[in-house]
Design a protein around this nucleic acid. Structure first.
Length: 419
RNA sequence: GGAGAGAUGGCUGAGCGGUUGAAAGCACCGGUCUUGAAAACCGGCAAAGGGGCAACUCUUUCCUGGGUUCGAAUCCCAGUCUCUCCGCCA
């Protein structure tokens, strides 16, 4: 969310910066509401002052007047609240401003490749897709999941289940011991205002799984990513500047409706309603966002380097970035069966956008209260990493070699074979 | 599911109708002392919003929403959340 005070200072710049997003916002409405709002606030405050003075004076002859003032205040407050609600509604639906580094573009076709790494494997046979491999091994069972649950779920069995667990642990260990992240095992439910804090609500409610609870209680949602719950650890807080940067890592299931992606990636486990992801979150001073973004992205690619998987790093264009992001790098891993790169990690700086929504602040040297910067990134999406290993490490007979760094996590298993 | 207790500043915690935005302690910042550090002592220290180039100033805020009152952190009602005990349970 944007700070109205900042917008007001440089209204035209704000407008221009957001045009990069290609979205439709009624800026004039916003400016008008803001103006009306402030006028009403002034009116109200004057009356409040008058009333306060009467009360302080304890002059009985003025008590009746004070009552009248109260009525006027009520009326103005009501009017002001209506305007304030409208204002906040508009404001909470405006996405973050793209950083100047971000290329302008409409959609994913305008994303720009930053670098490439690793060696694309060559096969002297036609490489199979992960789901063909998994089903051949009898270790991925989509039909069973359909029977017990529905579409876009999967049973991962046997050695592939072990591989999945190994990946999670390997990533966690790397981020904890090498990259300085603190491990968190968080709740997988988030309240509605937590969802608001990171930007999933109000605009993207349709993408979320809401939990059905007794009526009267707060709304709760299954987390679509650990970003939500980890970032909100500093919600409504003034954090001690000395503790910054805070770096958290968690491996959690993520739940997504994938509304609007009907018919997309229906085969296999690329796009599921539930998947494991190791998530990185940083809470930083507002000036350190971009620096931290580079660091975080390196933490993510580090995992791919260690797993010896080929990948490329993309910078997302303005039109393809998420709602809360000011700058995003996507890491895409090579998938032989598709003969192309697919997203396996997305690292974003959200500047103070989420900080404002969450009311997360810190004090700087001259005791000014500032909003924190927040970043999040996958380090990595475990399900998709599993896919990448299946496809890149496959042999002609359908067996899968285990990357060296994972073997200690798998009882030194070197290869997954049928039986 | 049954019975109680509570929700106050970064934290702990007093206040229970009128300069209380809120005692005290801790933490934090500045200073004195010290070779340095610690201790001790002195001083400072809430947030949000409005107005002002600024110095500054005004308003709001003691869980949330209503109510009583000239005036509410303090009284009344409703709700949410937390904790303790009993029962049940991974």
């Amino acid at each position: 969310m944007h700070n109205l005070k900042e917008i007001r200072k440089n209204y035209e710049n704000f407008k221009k910066a957001l045009q990069k997003r290609f979205i439709d916002i009624d800026f004039d409405e916003l400016a008008n509401l803001d103006k009306n709002n402030r006028e009403l606030i002034q009116k109200k405050e004057n009356l409040e002052k008058e009333k306060k003075d009467i009360s302080k004076s304890k002059d009985k002859s003025l008590f009746e007047k004070s009552k009248q003032i109260s009525l006027s205040i009520d009326k103005i407050t009501e009017e002001q609240n209506t305007i304030k609600d409208k204002l906040e509604k508009i404001l909470s639906n405006i996405p973050n401003i793209p950083h100047s580094d971000v290329p302008v573009g409409k959609d994913e076709n305008d994303n720009v490749e930053v670098s490439k790494s690793g060696k694309i494997p060559e096969f002297d046979f036609k490489p199979l897709s992960h789901y063909e491999l998994g089903e051949k091994l009898k270790m991925l069972d989509f039909d069973l999941a359909t029977k017990t649950t529905g579409s876009r779920f999967v049973f991962v069995k046997n050695k592939l289940a072990l591989l999945e667990r190994a990946l999670s642990n390997f990533m966690l260990d790397t981020h904890i011991t090498k990259n300085g992240y603190e491990e968190i095992s968080p709740p997988l439910f988030a309240s509605d205002n937590t969802m608001f804090g990171t930007g999933q609500l109000p605009k993207f409610e349709n993408d979320q799984f809401e939990i059905k609870l007794e009526k009267g209680s707060d709304r709760k949602f299954l987390i679509p990513t650990a970003e939500v719950i980890l970032t909100n650890m500093v919600k409504d807080k003034i954090v001690d500047k000395k503790t910054l940067p805070l770096r958290f890592v968690a491996s959690t299931p993520c739940f997504r409706k994938e509304a609007g992606s009907y018919g997309k990636d229906t085969k296999g486990m690329i796009r599921q309603h539930q998947f494991y992801k190791v998530e990185l979150v940083s809470i930083v001073e507002n000036t350190k966002c971009l620096e931290e973004l580079e660091r975080m992205t390196n933490c993510a690619t580090d995992i791919l380097d260690l797993l010896e998987l080929p990948y490329r790093k993309m910078i997302l264009c303005s039109g393809d970035m998420g709602f809360s992001a000011e700058k995003t790098y996507d890491i895409e891993v090579w998938l032989p069966s598709e003969n192309r790169y697919r997203e396996i990690s997305s690292c974003s700086s959200c500047s103070t956008f989420q900080g404002v929504r969450m009311k997360s602040r810190y004090k700087d040297e001259n005791k000014e209260t500032l909003f924190v910067g927040t970043l999040n990134g996958s380090g990595l999406a475990v399900g998709r990493t599993l896919i990448a290993i299946l496809e890149n490490y496959q042999e002609k007979d359908g067996s899968i070699n285990i990357p060296k760094v994972l073997r200690p996590y798998m009882n030194n298993l070197e290869k997954i074979t049928l039986n």
